[in-house]
Design a binder for these strands. Sequence first.
DNA 1: CTAAAATTATGATAATTATCATTTTTGGGA
DNA 2: TCCCAAAAATGATAATTATCATAATTTTAG
Lengths: 236, 236
Amino acid sequence: MRKQVYVGCEECGVKNDSLFKGLPDEEIENINYHKSCAFYKKGQILFHEGTRPLGVYCVNQGKIKVYRTGDDGKDQIIKIASGGDLLGYKALVSDELYPVSGETLENTKVCFIPKSEFLGMLTRVPSFGQQLLQAACQEMGAMTQNITSLAQKSVRERLAVTLLMLKDTYDVDPAAGNETEVEINLTREDLANIVGTATETIIRLLHDFKDEKLIETKGRKIKVLEPEKLVRVGNI
Amino acid sequence: MRKQVYVGCEECGVKNDSLFKGLPDEEIENINYHKSCAFYKKGQILFHEGTRPLGVYCVNQGKIKVYRTGDDGKDQIIKIASGGDLLGYKALVSDELYPVSGETLENTKVCFIPKSEFLGMLTRVPSFGQQLLQAACQEMGAMTQNITSLAQKSVRERLAVTLLMLKDTYDVDPAAGNETEVEINLTREDLANIVGTATETIIRLLHDFKDEKLIETKGRKIKVLEPEKLVRVGNI
DNA sequence: CTAAAATTATGATAATTATCATTTTTGGGA
DNA sequence: TCCCAAAAATGATAATTATCATAATTTTAG
């Protein structure tokens, strides 16, 4: 299920996309020494809502859904994490139980950094604390946007912005601009759990978008054809 | 409109409820020297979404609604701040424009601490940075709850939890337990902008709650009679 | 205290979205 | 490659919530 594997932090492909960017060499070395890396198969749970964090997860490859389970058992996906994302630091820093769970959406490579090392680094390297604080504050700004959208926009509009967001997440080569074909690969249920609606509603709306030539679907895969038109969904 | 007033930080009544708790005396003195305090009348805007933050606001007395304006002009209230709350530090720290506006709901007393002093303190006092980080991370956990609730719960359920939350916010003497009578004083429209629904819907649901003897209303004021039953709204 | 403005209330109706039942399709493992 | 469970699709219907119009009432300002 979980296979150990070695990936050196020094030459890690996603280091410079992560919050570890700019750390002094000796700190990177220290993380490298204490971390453990593993392959996870699709559908595995990295951490579970309500449990106590023992460290942080640094995503190297693959996608992970971060979600919260509502009172009625329905999941609400808070974000889709991918390479370079650091997961679980908020609960660790605020000394709380995980408010969310993390589950792999594909086969992934993830490194684990134990609590003591992470917190130690936080006290030793003030600039790292600043970076974390900055990242957290930035994320909160984005969350207010999400809250406003959930509270005010129709399901149709929310699906449109979700597809645009996922287009970025699933873009293998963001630098290439609109040339690359991005394939969003999520179940309709997961999509529904991002947008906050029923699976059937997502299926029907995707059908509409397809009729309107805004997207193209091939099995589960979704390709965004007209991002500009998708932005304007809802603006009549 | 805005009247300057002096309140010493050393003897500030809300200092120990704020993030400034535990700061060294010389830092408190420094804040005290550089801050400016003012009375604001009901309905005044402290800071406006989309503008650049010049400092942080520390609420001394009164309530302030923090909200984001949606594309269609409808406001979504993200939180109701009261004594001891620090506003605007997230945008300052992440060096972004305000994602939200702040408007007084009553006559308030608010202190302003300029950007340079606040950021200076952040670099001088590592423990303050830690505290801010912790507070931010904690707030994010609460936000995921809010997101889940908006995405999954019915308006009726959301109104119930909102009333319970406001009961705390408007409690003048939280230490007294359930003995004190708490009066929630918000327009139906503001309530609708917290819950994320139409004003008419809020009016109708409040009427229902009143019929069910869960609350009592007197003009605009709302009194929660049965918090335990309100918690269970939606659990059939 | 009074009048105007703002807010609250109520009714009728329409639009959106959820739910449930069922069929079809798909994709991943033996 | 085939099979089977999971996912997607479709239809019918119900429930929830929004919208618009208008009346009643409370608040606020002078």
